[in-house]
Structures are given as C-alpha cells and as structure tokens.
Simulated scan of single mutants.
Amino acid sequence: MADVMEHPKVVVGGVEIPAAAIAAEVQNHPAPDAEEAWQEAARALAVRQLLLAEADRQEIVAGECTDVEGRKLVEDDARIDALLVENVMVPNATAEEARRFYENHTDRFCSETLIEAEHILFSASPEDTFNYSLAVGDARMTIRELEANPASFGELAKAKSACPSKEQGGNLGQIGKGQTVAEFEQALFGLVEGELCREPVKSPYGVHVIRAGRRAEGRQLPFEVVEQSIRNYLEEASYRKAMSQYLSILASETEIEGVNLAAAEGPLVQ
C-alpha cells in the first residue's frame, strides 16, 4: 500500500479512482516494471470511468448482454458495450479493399517452409566447459559414423540421444521457422533434402547432430483462401482507430488528473 500512496490521485471528471482499485487492476496489465504496470492499470480504469460517465450523460440503459464467449456482462460493462455500439461504427471491409491489401502485402500470405528433421542430442550445459567439449567430441564421432553408414541414424539416435525423439529414431517431424532454437534452425534450413550437417551444432541445450529430411517449400496462398481473414484484420484496425478517436474526443472534453490518456493505445476496455 505504501507504494500505491506515492502515486498522484487519479481523477476523471471529478470522480476519483481509488488507489486500491488501481492496485487490484495491476494484475491485468503485465509490464516490464511495477511503475509501468501501475500506469497501464490507471489508464484502463480512467478510460472505463470516462466511458461510464458518457453513458450516464447519454442516459444509456443496457439490457442483458454477453461477451464474445457468451458470458453475461455485468451492468456497467453492458452499458459501455451499448455506448460503443451506438457511437463507434465501422463499415465492413469490402472485397476490393481486401484484395488491394493482399496485392500490397503478398509476402504476408505464404505458407511456411517445413523441413523434416532427424536429430541426435548430446546434452551438456555451455557453462560446463569440460562436459560441453566432450559432447562436441561425441557429436563429431557420430557424424563420422553416419557419413560411413547413413542408414544407422535411427539406431544411433536410440542409443545416444538425450532427446525424447530418440524413441522415434531421432525424427522430430516437420519443423517450421521459429519452432526451435536459432542455432538449430539456422543449421537445419541451410541443408538440402537428405543432407547431414557436417559439423556439430551447438546450442544452450547441448550439441546436436542434424540431418534434413523432406522439404516442403512455402507457397503463395490464393486470395480466396485469405480474403476473410484480411477483411477481419482491416475491420479490427478500423475499429481500433475509431475507438482511439472517440476516446480522444471524450478526454478532450473532460478534466483528467493523475494519468495521461494520450499515452493509451486502443480502448483499454477489459
């Protein structure tokens, strides 16, 4: 509570938001540090009060409402929802707008390249210099064995690997970018189909022996496949912009102390 008292009072249109309420709201706003979390929580509650005050001014009375998951909204949330429905209107994105966005951002609409990976892990911590160097040596010997007898990969994985994939002969299945550590990914995607990486691959988890399997290159997705997701994206972006503008208007007409609503991005409505 001592930390909460150090912050200035937050007052919106003459209504003070209790410091205890802001402290309770903090848990809903993860942030790099406590001060930023407190500011985000204060902004969220200030925006909420701003909207409730406007609902009062417009004499908004809401019936029973539910959220997107079908849960009944409490009265204040229902009134805010009704206020926004009445005052923040965004037109539906057209097929022409969606196609224009698609043609201007074709690189966003590609299926990802996938590579089947075979893998043998010699587990060791990079901080344990001695054991890590032993793991590198074991990986080099295994690579030499595989160069002499490529068909032995599964057998060697079952016998030597510290990875659970050893039960499948070291097969990790299809790997896409971003699904594994950077060192492993860089090595794997630098191989052609069926190629064994000639050098041990070092990572925070240990030392890896890697062989690439079948490769499925990414392909351009047809507009028809992604049209609806583009339209949803454009409508959401338009809604957020309209919400920001609406909140800016309300904030400019209201005396606000202790919090800067200009720093808020988006509606901040839970």
Rank of each mutant, 00 (worst) to 15 (best):
A98Q: 08
A212P: 11
K158M: 11
E127S: 14
A124C: 07
A24V: 11
L261H: 11
A53E: 15
L268S: 14
Q270K: 13
H208M: 02
N232P: 00
R108D: 13
E183V: 05
V68R: 12
R99N: 14
A98G: 10
K241S: 15
Q186E: 15
A78G: 06
E224D: 12
L261T: 11
A20S: 15
Y102C: 03
E199S: 10
G137D: 08
D81H: 14
A157D: 01
N28V: 00
E217C: 05
P32C: 06
T94M: 02
A23F: 03
E116M: 07
A93N: 00
V136P: 00
L51W: 03
A55V: 04
E86S: 10
G178L: 05
V61D: 08
G137W: 10
E193A: 14
S203P: 06
M243A: 04
K166M: 08
A46C: 04
A93C: 08
F189H: 03
R71C: 04
F130Y: 13
G63Q: 04
L188A: 09
S203H: 01
I256M: 01
G178I: 10
L191I: 09
N104W: 02
V201R: 03
V225S: 12
S161E: 08
A31C: 08
Q179G: 14
H119K: 03
R214I: 09
T113R: 12
P164L: 11
V74W: 13
M89W: 07
T106H: 07
L146T: 07
A93W: 01
L247H: 01
Y239Q: 10
L50G: 06
S125G: 04
P164E: 11
S229D: 12
R231Q: 09
R43W: 05
A148H: 13
P267L: 10
E185C: 03
M243F: 08
E255Q: 11
R198N: 08
